[in-house]
């Protein structure tokens, strides 16, 4: 099918983009188009105008000092190929390998994947596990939103219609253990369940802080408070703790059921991959500082 008609706006600056979004009710941001255009082709989305942010200077790029900054329109392929990200934030590299295919990653953007808030998407969960912060541009200024506060539900975030995700900041990962695991029907498909893990150890290898971020289990990416609580005080790589954390991971989380799998399947598969990820975290090479 073909998309319905719309006006195409290509702002040259962030300020113009914000103005265009405000002035055109029912408009949408166009970034890589790899989620929006399929929805428009199927007429699941019919925006009256698209604001193409793909050519705004300064909105794309990767920089790393203590922390990592990724501009919203940076292509997923570029982040995946980035040597600094591979060395210092390998959790992001691992997550990106599962996002679509080379041709969708060459156009799809880092920020688009986050703003789209598909519950089965990999990057949002990676952002939760890494305590990322999102800088949002709005009329008259910016605001910063923690990843934990950003995702509200299916394809829904705290972004207002005239707001734009500008860039993402990720604190250093060095010294923490990490792992990423998912179950999908084929490589590159959206996950049926998945998890991103980060464990901060003390000098004796005992977990002092844990992040267990689940995706494709519910209407939005969520941290498992139960699993995180259980892991603090255990040893990194402890098999019993890993099994127990997998079992409680979905306590207090409403598990989704869909045309692919039942809630029971999801719960059991989630327990298995949380366990697997926690064991892998002990052996995955840690990110460098």
């Amino acid at each position: 099918m073909k998309p319905a008609q719309f006006d195409y706006l290509r702002p040259g600056s962030l300020a113009e983009a914000i103005e265009a979004l405000g002035a055109n009710p029912d408009s949408k941001v166009l970034a890589g188009g790899q989620s929006l255009i399929p929805m428009m082709n199927m007429r699941l989305a019919r925006p009256s105008a698209l604001v193409d942010i793909g050519r705004i200077d300064g909105l794309a790029g990767i920089s790393a000092n203590g922390s990592l900054r990724v501009g919203a329109t940076t292509r997923q392929a570029e982040v995946l190929a980035d040597a600094t990200v591979q060395r210092r934030w390998p959790l992001i590299t691992a997550a990106l390998r599962h996002v679509g295919h080379p041709a969708t990653r060459a156009r799809g953007t880092f920020g688009g994947s986050i703003a789209h808030a598909e519950p089965a998407a990999e990057l949002p969960a990676a952002m939760l596990a890494l305590d990322a912060a999102f800088t949002v541009h709005r009329p008259g200024g910016t605001r910063t939103v923690a990843a934990t506060d950003f995702f509200l539900g299916h394809y829904t975030t705290v972004l207002a219609e005239d707001e734009l995700l500008g860039h993402v900041d990720v604190p250093a990962l060095g010294g923490s253990h990490w792992a990423f695991a998912e179950v999908a029907r084929r490589h590159g498909d959206y996950a049926l369940t998945g998890v991103a893990v980060r464990l901060t150890p003390d000098a004796d290898g005992v977990v002092t802080d844990a992040r267990v971020a689940l995706f494709a289990v519910s209407s939005r990416p969520v941290r498992s408070a139960a699993a995180e609580r259980l892991l603090v005080g255990t040893r990194v790589g402890d098999a019993e703790a890993a099994t127990a954390a997998g079992k409680v991971a979905l306590d207090d989380i409403e598990v989704a059921e869909d045309s692919f799998v039942s809630a029971t399947y999801r719960t059991e598969a989630t327990a298995a991959i949380v366990r697997r990820a926690l064991l892998e975290a002990a052996t995955n090479p840690k990110g460098e500082n």
Binding site: L30, G33, P38, D52, A103, A106, R107
Partner: peptide, 27 residues
């Protein structure tokens, strides 16, 4: 498929692979 799934429409844009069914000509 015109929804990004089959890859038949893949072309190179500035040397990078892209699904031409998921790109507007104006882009």
């Amino acid at each position: 498929c015109e929804q990004g799934v089959c890859g038949a429409c893949t072309v190179l844009i500035d040397g990078q692979p892209a699904r031409s069914c998921l790109t507007f000509a104006v882009q």
